[in-house]
Write a protein that binds this DNA or RNA. Structure first.
Lengths: 345, 345
DNA sequence: GTGAAAGCGCTAACAC
DNA sequence: GTGTTAGCGCTTTCAC
């Protein structure tokens, strides 16, 4: 097998405990001895075995990161950032994909439990109740979800939706549509509430369409309904849905942004590369990944005590080419009574 | 702490070794006893501690997966497939991102070494020599690279490039350009060789442009050069480069596919969603992920004996909207001598 | 400041 | 078929 602490001890002419101390509590060992041990260690290419170490310390220095779908363009930047940040702090991370299956999610958590110090759950599919129960045995941080007693990082899509509505109304749009996400999505619900309120405040009409599949297909399929409600500006659940919608509209002879303004959410590469380039609500996914790891490590250190922390990350509208001023005549006929809008604030 | 094998033994009224056997060699224990042990185990919620198990067996049941950049759209499908397949076989996977840094790659491998049974290296940035050396201590599988003594999964981009050239020449294009990837890319070199040979065989001219950054920017920047060589059809190193090129051409008043045909490589979402939809060489990334894990597990089981296996995966051209027949008059004037092409085969 | 010894949770001979 | 024992690589009392 590989080189162990015993080999180093022998080579340095000290006892194993001294070698152990040199690595886990260097200040407790005489400088000279330390040098000698370190020299022997590098000479032999010794690396402490984390797994063995974990057996006595109870700290694996590993984290779990569980997402619904690695291939969904929303996740990779988050995974990348979480992994990089964890590494900086001396942790390795298991990345697992549940394929949107709650059953698999639970199984994953349980098999991972003994090998990690904590896990980050991104947009979990498990019920709050299940998560709470599992949370008793292992530190968790949830992303885009609120679970009693657990730290969470939330992305403020509500404010993003508000910005999107303002952007559209400032371009003169008065009839808006919101393409919601899948049933039960926390994000979708936040968007709906915020957009509805803001539209009302701005005196605009807003039709909510959904639930929709969070995919390109979801957008394409919704195109007829969008046209049906006579909206001139629409906010989609995410970039994929927005892109699908644009396609669906094109198939029906409506060009974006000339005939319709479309706003996405997420700011994925796909949207950035789309033509027209997508106006979208940028989600702070990388920051979310880092923050989640940060909170998790805090929770790990606190070992049960220490209150759960909630961090809300700001979103921001990125204006590109898929939105434009409403065409004259596209709004309710001049002179017709506007929908009464409650003044904001 | 959590529930251990000892608790189960006590509850079931047997000794720890019996419990151990019930989990690692069920056939070696009497059916009745086994039932009793299993009952006690589930009742207590016992799960074997993999890390402790690894200490004696030398098998961690963990794998490492090291990629250059998680956020690059090429990798997620591979990661997803590898992870899913590993899980099916009872393995968890550490995913790590080197940020294209060979130093970091090496460090990662070394710190991971003790915690995994093997690692998959995707498009490694380390030199072959370094990899060979590390390969002595740990089973490796490399993807898109050949390293002496190690199993590898290769994607046949050469054949993909040939298909792309044929597609373009069959559309009447006679002056082609190839946008290479970054310096030292195995993939890029394979493409160059294959495309050059096939173009010659088809009596077409092929200009190689590069090295280019494997990003959208790389494509945009290459636009002037592409125009300069008077090509009417171009094959880009990957989808991102292709998309960038299309943009760069548009900025110069050249529309795709009317004014220029463009073929990408990878078949990422980005290309699928681009407008015009990208004609591209589909890379079997998911299959590569699965195959890599498969080969790795074989190597792990063989423990040093067992020859290194090489698997080459086919690529295939997906024709969409970014390629079209050459415009009349765009080729060398009729009557002018064609470039002599060596007949194929 | 360093050595000796026990033990983390588990498996693997070896007895019986 | 099951119990006993030693030990995987490491940390951590406790002596000295």
């Amino acid at each position: 097998m590989a080189v162990t602490i015993r080999d180093v001890a022998q080579a340095a002419g000290v006892h194993v405990s001294t070698v152990s101390r040199t690595f886990s509590a260097p200040h407790m060992v005489n400088a000279d001895t330390r040098e000698r041990v370190l020299a022997a260690a590098t000479q032999l290419g010794y690396r402490p075995n984390q797994a063995a170490r974990a057996l006595t310390t109870g700290r694996t220095h590993n984290l779990g990161l569980i997402v619904a779908d690695i291939a969904n363009p929303f996740f990779p930047p988050l995974i990348k950032a979480a992994q990089a940040y964890a590494r900086e702090r001396g942790y390795h991370v298991f990345v697992a994909d549940t394929d949107e299956d709650p059953q698999e999610e639970q199984e994953l958590i349980q098999t991972l439990a003994k090998q990690v110090d904590g896990v980050v759950l991104v947009s979990p599919r498990l019920t709050n109740h299940s998560i709470e129960r599992l949370g008793m045995e292992l530190p968790f941080v949830v992303v885009n979800r609120r679970v009693k007693g657990l730290s969470a990082v939330l992305m403020d899509v509500g404010s993003g939706a508000v910005q999107a509505v303002r952007h559209l109304t400032s371009l003169g749009h008065r009839r808006l549509a919101l393409l919601g996400g899948p049933r039960g999505s926390w994000t979708s619900e936040q968007m709906r509430k915020a957009a509805t309120a803001e539209a009302a405040a701005a005196g605009a009409e807003l039709t909510v369409i959904g639930p929709n599949s969070p995919t390109e297909r979801g957008g394409t399929d919704a195109a007829p309904e969008v046209l049906g409600c006579r909206a001139t500006g629409v906010i989609a659940y995410n970039d994929l849905v927005a892109i699908g919608l644009i396609e669906g509209l094109a198939a029906r002879g409506v060009e974006v942004p000339a005939g319709m303004s479309v706003v996405g959410v997420d700011d994925t590469v796909a949207g950035r590369l789309n033509r027209p380039k997508l106006t979208t609500v940028a989600m702070p996914t990388a920051a979310a990944g880092r923050t989640a790891v940060d909170l998790l490590l805090q929770a790990v250190d606190a070992r049960g005590n220490g209150a759960a922390a909630q961090t809300t990350l700001e979103t921001s509208l990125v204006v590109r080419e898929s939105t434009a001023a409403v065409r004259p005549g596209e709004n309710p006929p001049a002179g017709a009574p506007e929908i009464a809008g409650a003044p904001a604030g």
